[in-house]
Computed example of a mutant assay.
Amino acid sequence: MKRHLIAAGALLLALAGCSTTAPETDQASPGAPTVTTDKAAFLAEHGLEGMDGAQIIDHLDQVPLAQRSTDLMASVRADHLLLADAEREFTIPLPEDRFYLAVAPYVDHTHECYYHSLTTCRGELAGEELRIRIVDDATGETLVEEQVTTFDNGFVGFWLPQGVNGTIEAGYQGRTGRSAFSTTDEGATCLTTLQLTEA
């Protein structure tokens, strides 16, 4: 039992912050609990009952910081969502043709990130209006062009087509910035390198 608690604790620590690198595997540590028969109960306990993977992501990323669970960890991967608490871990599939990209444009402060944590990642600009344009570099097609307001965590999320290498441009109070992104299987779901500078 003690070994299981230690392993589960290690898993939570691994998911607690924004992941900065792409791990070689999503397997839990040896000895970690891998119970999968009570997924519905797990989701219900965390207020996520009846939601699919995409709905869970959209919900958790927009929960106000003061209302966020300290027990639940949620990490967005290219093709699935990894959910865990101190005792259990579950993988929730995501739409095969879509990719969730969480973007946190910044002026002064940022952090390294690879896989977006829906419960712990924080960006500098919370509740701010930005102009966003997302372009597929191969085709020149504009995938997104709109005015958005960042969530309470400083991020804004976009569901993009799979298999795109592109550029995201942002504008904010006379500042602009741009950054490359990829929605391939190896692509990062967390983009924190888009700095906004004065023209």
Results as ranks from 00 to 15, higher is better:
2 K>R: 13
3 R>I: 13
6 I>H: 10
7 A>C: 08
8 A>T: 11
16 A>H: 14
19 S>M: 14
21 T>Q: 12
23 P>A: 04
24 E>C: 00
24 E>M: 06
25 T>Y: 06
27 Q>F: 07
28 A>T: 10
28 A>C: 08
32 A>H: 09
32 A>Q: 12
33 P>Y: 09
36 T>N: 13
37 T>Q: 14
38 D>Y: 10
38 D>H: 11
40 A>Y: 10
44 A>H: 10
44 A>N: 14
45 E>Q: 15
45 E>Y: 08
47 G>L: 00
47 G>A: 00
47 G>Y: 06
49 E>M: 02
52 D>P: 02
57 I>S: 00
57 I>F: 04
59 H>V: 01
66 A>T: 03
70 T>H: 06
74 A>E: 11
74 A>V: 03
77 R>S: 09
81 L>F: 11
82 L>N: 11
82 L>W: 15
83 L>M: 08
83 L>Y: 09
84 A>M: 08
84 A>R: 13
84 A>T: 04
85 D>M: 09
86 A>T: 07
88 R>K: 15
88 R>Q: 15
91 T>C: 07
95 P>A: 04
104 A>G: 14
106 Y>W: 14
107 V>P: 00
107 V>M: 03
108 D>A: 14
109 H>Y: 14
110 T>Y: 13
111 H>D: 12
111 H>G: 02
114 Y>T: 05
116 H>R: 11
117 S>Y: 07
118 L>N: 09
122 R>A: 10
125 L>V: 04
128 E>I: 05
129 E>Y: 06
130 L>D: 08
130 L>K: 08
132 I>P: 00
133 R>W: 07
137 D>R: 13
138 A>L: 13
139 T>N: 07
144 V>H: 05
145 E>M: 02
146 E>Q: 15
150 T>A: 05
150 T>R: 06
153 N>Q: 10
154 G>L: 01
154 G>W: 04
155 F>W: 07
157 G>N: 03
158 F>H: 09
166 G>I: 00
168 I>E: 06
174 G>E: 05
175 R>D: 00
180 A>H: 07
183 T>A: 12
184 T>E: 08
187 G>W: 06
188 A>F: 05
189 T>C: 07
193 T>C: 00
195 Q>G: 04
